[in-house]
Write a protein that binds this DNA or RNA. Structure first.
Lengths: 229, 229
DNA sequence: GAAATTTGTAATAACTATATAATGTTTTGG
DNA sequence: CCAAAACATTATATAGTTATTACAAATTTC
């Protein structure tokens, strides 16, 4: 079972978070202080940390920094006031994401799942392989980062390739633009959602016979995109 | 199957490490003391050692030294406190790498893989052969460490040759600068990433007809470099 | 141990990919 | 069939990456 650490001094909130996580089959520990949290991280193999910004002994940023000294584990900051969100954005490095109190339980779980999945994918020993992907007359080679359509190589940019590989790794699965932004661009990207649209367009321009009538990348109206098999 | 030795007195940690390794198709043995570890190394053909710094009978550094007396096998030190990391760095020779407890499972596996690959390459007993490499009008002779382009010998420095050979051994494969630093410069090199850029430039200056329009070493934007075949 | 060569670093110039904005088109629900 | 929303398309400015040059430090050679 996936272990998650909650660092939060208000017990009622911590227990609420733990309840939601356990409902979703996560195993959650609670640490009431930054110091306790750090010690637990040193002793356990957690998959993710939910870190309150306001702690009695040291502030969240400091805890964040100290966690980063020993681990690359995903960290989601939990903040009480929305004003703090801008601060976290500006801080850049450290936390991977933030969520405002009072949080929406489903969003909390969604983000936890997404961060763990992304982490696994980026550290590459996860479920994603380096094997070639063949669909129709399309060939995707992760190792060389080359793409062929009908025996002709198509030169893709880094983002185009990442996007294609991500989608083609789960064919027929529908991905929302938000999900694609999270998984391909990363959580620290707070840009416009149309970025995805434009990249899909460019991909189609390169790999589809007729970009207006795509064979591979299908638009699922009101939902997102799907890579057809 | 690749055999790995874990020297660690805390059984729970040793078993955790073994589980992650076995999930990734390694065959792991556990030794609870330095003495036992040394005996096992004498009797088995391990590919790598995971060595805890704190052992009941002798400290990790001593074990490390004694292993080195009988074998050049890669050693990764596992240390509990992050302060120790500086000590290991400073100690120089002996261990090839270190990893802090609690380690990140994916990172552990990634390093194990990378070290075994590097060891194979350097001892050339693995998948990398001493055979000449011919690509285009380029000839690379690993045995004599000579390089010819269009029947004319090009005098490369040691690092230039190592870099070229490494890349040319896996043509079309894309390598990030970080990966090149790890595999060509070594894990104990904590220098700047631009070092790679400059060496690529110098290589191009020597082997390419027009260094600004390279035929062999291609830049893969936002990702790294690739040796074209 | 001095000279020569290799190697690493730093600064800046050149370039590319990419985000964004603006505008046009298609889909969908009423 | 109309209006609103979702998506497609195009062009452009900018942020981020790489190339290039020069120099300093380290290493090797003599």
């Amino acid at each position: 079972m996936e272990k998650i650490l909650i660092i939060e001094d208000e017990l009622s909130i911590a227990e609420l978070e733990r309840d939601y996580l356990e409902l979703n089959h996560y195993d959650a520990d609670i640490a009431a202080t930054g110091q306790e949290g750090l010690e637990r991280i040193k002793e356990n193999a957690y998959r993710l940390v939910l870190l309150d910004l306001m702690l009695p002994d040291m502030d969240g940023y400091e805890v964040c920094r100290k966690i980063r000294e020993i681990s690359e584990i995903p960290i989601i900051m939990v903040t009480a006031k929305n004003e703090d969100i801008d601060m976290i954005r500006g801080l850049g490095r450290g936390a991977d994401d933030y969520i405002a109190k009072p949080f929406n339980p489903n969003q909390l779980i969604a983000r936890v799942k997404a961060h763990i999945a992304r982490y696994d994918r980026l550290t590459s020993s996860g479920p994603f392989k380096d094997e070639d992907i063949r669909i129709g007359d399309l060939l995707i080679q992760p190792g060389t980062r080359k793409v062929f359509a009908g025996n002709q190589e198509k030169i893709l940019t880094a983002k185009e390739f990442d996007l294609l590989l991500f989608m083609a790794s789960s064919p027929n699965q529908v991905f929302s633009k938000e999900h694609l932004l999270e998984q391909v661009w990363g959580f620290d990207f707070y840009g416009d959602i149309t970025t995805v649209t434009v990249h899909i367009r460019r991909l189609r321009e390169k790999i589809e016979k007729d970009p207006s009538e795509p064979d591979y990348i299908e638009t699922v109206w009101g939902v997102g995109y799907r890579f057809k098999r």
